[in-house]
Design a protein around this nucleic acid. Structure first.
Length: 907
RNA sequence: GGGCGCUUAGCGCAGCUGGUUUAGAGCAUCUGCCCUACAAGCAGAGGGUCGGCGGUUCGAAUCCGUCAGCGCCCACCA
């Protein structure tokens, strides 16, 4: 069946049911939007508004974090569309090399296939098959949420267009001298067996141990010890002789120890100067060296130096030209083949052990030999791979790097001077901090799923030199494979090396790039400020000469009710699709947004979606009420005209407020403002004002105005709740084919000139006063148990609008005598009285009045304390003093009225 | 070890270029209501002195200092 027709049918008649059922409505309208290409954008004469989606992992599924993020983007895009801008939201996915490669490997394993047994080409075929099969599910899921992406522009970070640009950028940087290949100590993920960037390492505090190991002093040098002990020496000796004590958290790296280092100024260890010691359990004889890097007083002041397995030790190694002995395999098992032949007998038993198993074993063995002085509990930070969550291993390897200082220099100023503005602004500090301490970016990965590094080695030369010693100036870096016998670099590029081009790479055509770039807003989490945000800014200036986006909106983290991060293992993360089934997409969108100001974590709870669903229901019923009214051609009563004028002003004012809040990215507050307008003002007050008596018709004019208000409120709400607003927009009146609430040119009115009609606010003030009187009457009804249907008399000094009589179900008596048996209340300084002969509880009334009197007198004392203070009267601004005088006057009037009431009550 | 941010009703928040009737909404709570748009609702109510202390000021939730607690980011003390 034709989906378009279905949608039209839905809108032709409001359903009779009293609750809103979103399911069918949402899927039909989404199809309608697609069928009419309402999300598609092409460059034209209008102002452009563009957003690029933070591309989710191609094989990912929708979680609550996405719901928050994508809802915000959709709100911004839909609002821009309503403002008449040419809005374009580009969707897409990320190839997420590490994560996806891991998934593919896991799947192959389930099929009994090992990655090692496949060629690169075979593996990639499997990976693409997997991507085609499972990829892009998340984009489908975004449709359920209502996301108005321009699906024709869907991009993928590993598709042909994107690849071209990534390779071009790599080559460009290489030619500019900003990319180099080098042997460095990098963060190694032994699980995935690849290098990582510094940003991909997450440090966790851990309870571990500090092992104090005995490094025996070599006998030939021992004799001198006794004769020459400097002041303050701390000498260790047991029945077998002298030894140094070295503290380490990683005894399994001991096989790679090259020397022991002390601080030259450390008196405790000065006796070790010039000595040699034996690496325990290994038997290697190593020198004591001296360097001020070692901190006196930490541990024993003796540091074992393992240049192949520690960043600092590597630095020392460079400084003193020490050799490296790498004792780990790529998957972090012990490799004893690198240890000297003559020591093999000592260490052979550890060969092939896992690094942590080896730690236990070597400690045990050393304890047996009496070579462990002591073991202390110790808390230290251990780096974990962000993706595989295994402890990373510092590893010396040949990798490709981007020189970052140049990029830091171009990316810092625009953020600091707000050319690119951050919401909330506090992240500017974080950003600056990172850029001011920038380090080179390791971009090569030992993975297959990704952009292959376009570097080529002469096959013959490579055979002679090997990769490590291949001369850098003979590397060919090129967009295309060079002619001849060349071998391409095996590495792939860090995923972020393609992501950082996203805001420009998604626009295929030059014309599009010119029109849509820079994009308007970026919506993302602060956790990828370094990974992505900063690097996009760098890339934007480097290749487009301009910022990639004008504003960055940082969302918070979605947590559960107890403040815990949502995770699969905790099982505290609801399935968004399930929530949409239960509450409707509009309900879920409102739920997630309500308590999510920029940068604040949100504590998700189903009750928030319930509130969203309930709001939909309220809107739905407002419409049912209006649509169900009988109409007449009679003149509108004065009360209708007052109500219409009031609501016109209120709506115009609220629209401006909402607009202002949106400009400040205060989306939650904007939604709350609309919510209150709809619920309190429109449903609670306005509809009650114009509602005809039972069985009576409403006049056409009033109904028309009311429908106009309703439509304008729908439009105001549309960015937040697209489905119900579209549904009711079509239910209000028949629309042309393809018409939509998201189109810009509906119902323009000039809010400013409307508001100018009540410039001094007198009319609005009158209605607000009137509402307070109604509330006062209702209050007395509640206190005295007077049923709503029972009419009461209201004694007032001045006549009020008939709206009061209608809303409070009362009859006004102007200036009438106030009986002593009555209840009264004050609005401002005006007193209102309701005779209550049959109902009044005199004591309760007196108590209430006395309470009010005490409050007013306390207030008056505060005001008078100020006014009696000469320094206040002379120093404060005149208008402030005047305000206090007014307060004093009003308080006195109210006190007088309360006293009079109390007196008459006592009669 | 540095840097940043937060601490306001039961909960999550707004207010913070000092003064607008002795602090504001939402949710939750309590009371009363199935009144013909809505019980996924209506009407009404209670509840904070603004983390502690000190200072500046005629006046501070709002500015300054300090202490405490919480959170985030960065950092090569084994």
């Amino acid at each position: 069946m034709d989906q378009h027709n279905q949608a039209s049918q839905v809108s032709s008649a409001p359903a009779a049911q009293t609750t809103y059922n979103p399911t069918d409505i949402e899927s039909r309208w989404y199809q309608y939007w697609l069928d009419n290409h309402l999300f598609h954008s092409e460059p034209d004469g209008r102002e452009a508004y563009s957003i690029v989606i933070p591309p989710p992992n191609v094989t990912g599924v929708l979680h609550m974090g996405h719901v928050l993020n994508e809802t915000i983007q959709d709100i911004l895009v839909r609002r821009a569309r309503l403002q008449g801008k040419n809005a374009c939201w580009v969707p897409g996915t990320d190839h997420a090399s590490i994560a996806t490669e891991a998934k593919v490997i896991k799947r192959l394993k389930e099929q009994g296939i090992n990655k090692q047994d496949l060629t690169r080409e075979e593996f990639l075929r499997h990976a693409w098959a997997w991507t085609d099969e499972h990829g892009g599910i998340i984009l489908k899921q975004l449709r359920r949420l209502g996301c108005s992406c321009d699906w024709d522009r869907t991009a993928f970070t590993l598709d042909e267009k994107r690849s071209e640009q990534v390779i071009r950028v790599f080559c460009d940087l290489y030619r500019k001298g900003l990319i180099y290949r080098g042997l460095r100590m990098v963060n190694w993920d032994p699980e995935r067996q690849t290098a990582l960037s510094d940003e991909e390492v997450i440090y966790h505090e851990e309870h571990s141990h500090l092992y104090y190991l005995k490094y025996r002093v070599v006998e030939s040098t021992e004799s001198k010890v006794e004769n020459n002990l400097p002041e303050g020496s701390v000498v260790h000796k047991d029945e077998q002789g002298y030894y140094a004590v070295v503290a380490t958290t990683r005894p399994e790296t001991i096989f790679g120890d090259i020397c022991v280092c002390i601080n030259p100024k450390d008196p405790a260890n000065a006796w070790l100067k010039g000595k040699q010691v034996v690496v325990p359990g290994v038997g290697r004889i190593v020198p004591i060296i001296e360097d001020r890097y070692v901190e006196i007083g930490f541990g024993t002041g003796c540091l074992k130096v393992t240049p192949a397995h520690d960043v600092n030790d590597y630095a020392l190694g460079q400084k003193y030209n020490l050799r490296t002995i790498d004792v780990f395999t790529a998957d972090a098992h012990l490799n004893m083949d690198t240890v000297e032949d003559e020591l093999q007998n000592n260490v052979r038993r550890y060969h092939g052990m896992d690094r942590f198993a080896c730690r236990e074993q070597i400690v045990k063995d050393l304890q047996d030999k009496g070579l462990v002085e002591k073991i202390e509990d110790y808390d230290n930070k251990v780096g974990y791979s962000e993706r595989t969550n295994v402890p990373i291993e510092p590893r010396l390897s040949l990798q490709w790097f981007v020189k970052m200082q140049h990029f830091a220099d171009i990316a810092l100023p625009p953020v600091m001077n707000d050319d690119i503005s951050f919401y909330p602004a506090k992240y500017k500090n974080t950003y600056r901090n990172w850029l001011e301490n920038i380090k080179d970016w390791c971009i090569s990965r030992q993975l297959w799923w990704g952009h292959r590094i376009p570097a080529y080695y002469d096959a013959d030369l490579l055979a002679q030199t090997g990769l490590e010693n291949y001369p850098n100036d003979r590397i060919v870096v090129s967009e295309t494979r060079p002619e001849g016998n060349y071998v391409q670099d095996e590495g792939a590029l860090d995923t972020w090396f393609s992501s950082w081009l996203w805001p420009m790479s998604v626009f295929d055509k030059e014309e599009d790039l010119r029109y849509y770039y820079p994009t308007a807003d970026l919506v993302t989490g602060p956790d990828i400020i370094f990974f992505w945000v900063a690097r996009m800014i760098m890339a934007g200036y480097e290749w487009q000469g301009d910022k990639p986006f004008r504003h960055v909106y940082f969302t918070g983290i979605v947590r559960d009710k107890l403040g815990r991060k949502m995770s699969k293992s905790l099982g505290n993360s609801p399935d968004p699709l399930d929530l949409i089934d239960r509450y409707g997409a509009d309900g879920v969108r409102m739920g997630i947004l309500l308590s999510a100001p920029a940068g604040n974590d949100i504590l998700y709870d189903d009750s928030l979606c319930e509130q969203g669903r309930n709001f939909c229901n309220k809107i739905w019923n407002c419409f049912r009420m209006l649509k169900g009214l009988q109409v007449s051609d009679t003149e509108a009563p004065i009360t209708d005209r007052e109500a219409v004028t009031w609501f016109t002003l209120l709506l115009a004012k609220t629209e401006k407020e909402v607009d202002d809040l949106m400009n400040k990215y205060r989306l939650s507050e904007a939604l709350m403002t609309i919510y209150k307008l709809f619920t309190d003002e429109f449903s609670g007050w306005y509809l009650e004002m114009i509602k005809p008596a039972y069985g009576q018709p409403i006049c056409q004019k009033t109904l028309d105005c009311s429908m106009l208000f309703f439509e304008r409120m729908l439009r105001l709400l549309h960015p937040f709740m697209p489905f119900i607003t579209e549904e009711l927009y079509h239910a209000i009146a028949p629309r042309e084919a393809g018409d939509t609430i998201m189109r810009a040119d509906t119902m323009d009115w000039d809010a400013d000139s409307l508001l100018a009609q009540d410039e001094d606010g007198a009319f609005m003030a009158r209605i607000e006063h009137l509402k307070q009187v109604v509330t006062g009457v209702r209050n007395i009804r509640a206190q005295h148990n007077i049923a709503p249907k029972e009419a009461v008399t209201l004694i007032a000094a001045q006549p009020l609008s008939q709206l009061v009589d209608k809303l409070a179900h009362c009859t006004q008596q102007i200036g009438a005598e106030k009986p002593s048996l009555a209840a009264s209340f004050l609005v401002g300084t005006d007193e209102y009285t309701i005779p209550l002969a049959n109902f009044i509880d005199v004591e309760a009334e007196r108590k209430k009045l006395l309470g009010e009197l005490a409050h007013q007198e306390g207030f008056l004392r505060g005001v008078e304390a100020k006014l009696n203070n000469e320094r206040f009267v002379t120093n404060a601004k005149p208008e402030v003093v005047e305000m206090e005088r007014k307060k004093q006057h009003d308080a006195n009037e109210r006190i007088a009225a309360l006293k009079a009431r109390l007196a008459s009550l006592s009669l």
